[in-house]
Amino acid sequence: MLLWINGPFGGGKTQTAHEIRRRLPGSVVCDPEHVGFGLHRALPPELRDDFRDLAAWRQGVVEVLDLALTRHEGVVIAPMTVTDPGHFAETVGRLRELGHDVRHFTLLAERETVLRRLRERGFERFLKYVRGKNAGPRGESWAVRQLDHCLERLGEPEFAEHLWTDRTTVPRTADRIAVLAGLTLRPNHEGPLRTRLRQAGVGIRHIRFD
């Protein structure tokens, strides 16, 4: 089974994916962004636009996830924002055509909720410190510019199943996805402080400097 976790940038996809992986034995996170980062690094900086528009990215994601789903015995989790219906058909749709059991979920929240989460992300504060206290993180700025478009497109029926996350936590969102997918997660025995520290660690591991 593939769990594709969609949603706006800063919407909690990566944290939710790693929460599921932590509590679902045998599962693995395969992040389609890494395919895009590799393509960006192969291009001159001035040509690095949205890698989702590259056919090579869409084809590469399908090939990588098809291999993981075919060879790996556990659940595969892919946290990735896809808002273009054509791109969705060429990735999620194509994997379904190949015979894979793909469960797609879109994490949604009100605009102000996502903006607050972007401001509060621990690794964004770390980047701001490293680059100077008045420097706005590049990733956050790009995410803010994309936010309205993401929320508008991802609210469409074709991007269901929709899960609203304004008044819930990452562990509870993971629980909800598991129920809808027919999976059983290990119980979550973490306290709030340990959860925050672990989530900060996930964020730091996903810092990008290029």
Rank of each mutant, 00 (worst) to 15 (best):
G12R: 13
P8L: 04
V102R: 00
H40Y: 04
A89T: 01
G60Q: 06
T195P: 03
Q146E: 09
D166H: 01
R176I: 07
T70A: 08
K133E: 14
D49H: 14
R94P: 01
L183Q: 04
E46R: 05
E73I: 04
R41A: 15
H18S: 05
D50C: 01
A68G: 04
P45Q: 10
L163T: 10
H72D: 05
T169D: 00
R116C: 00
V130F: 01
G38L: 09
A68K: 03
R119F: 05
L193E: 14
L115A: 06
T169C: 02
F159I: 06
R58A: 09
E152D: 15
F37K: 00
V144S: 06
R125M: 11
A68M: 13
E63Q: 10
L65P: 05
E120L: 14
L39D: 08
P32M: 03
A17R: 06
S141K: 15
F9N: 14
A56D: 14
I20K: 08
H162R: 07
G99V: 13
E161I: 11
T168K: 03
D50A: 03
G122H: 14
C150Y: 08
G60V: 12
W57Q: 02
L115Y: 02
I204Y: 13
E110C: 04
F88Y: 14
N6E: 08
L67W: 05
D66S: 02
T168H: 05
E124F: 13
E73Y: 05
L3D: 08
Q15D: 13
I20W: 09
E158M: 12
A181Y: 01
A135I: 14
A143N: 09
K13P: 12
H72C: 11
D50H: 07
T16A: 01
D53K: 09
V92H: 02
R111D: 04
R116P: 00
V62C: 04
A174R: 09
V82H: 00
I207G: 02
V28Y: 10
W4A: 02
L185R: 09
I204G: 04
G132L: 08
P157F: 00
L107D: 10
G36E: 02
P157A: 00
L69F: 06
L127P: 10
R71V: 15
E33D: 04
R58I: 10
T113P: 07
T168L: 01
R48D: 07
P137M: 11
G132T: 11
V82A: 01
G93L: 12
V179R: 13
E63P: 04
R121F: 12
R121V: 12
V114N: 08
R96Q: 15
L2V: 05
P85M: 08
R119M: 01
A143E: 11
T83S: 11
H87A: 00
A42W: 07
F209P: 02
H149D: 08
L95A: 08
E110A: 07
E120A: 14
D53T: 13
G60E: 04
N6Y: 12
L118D: 05
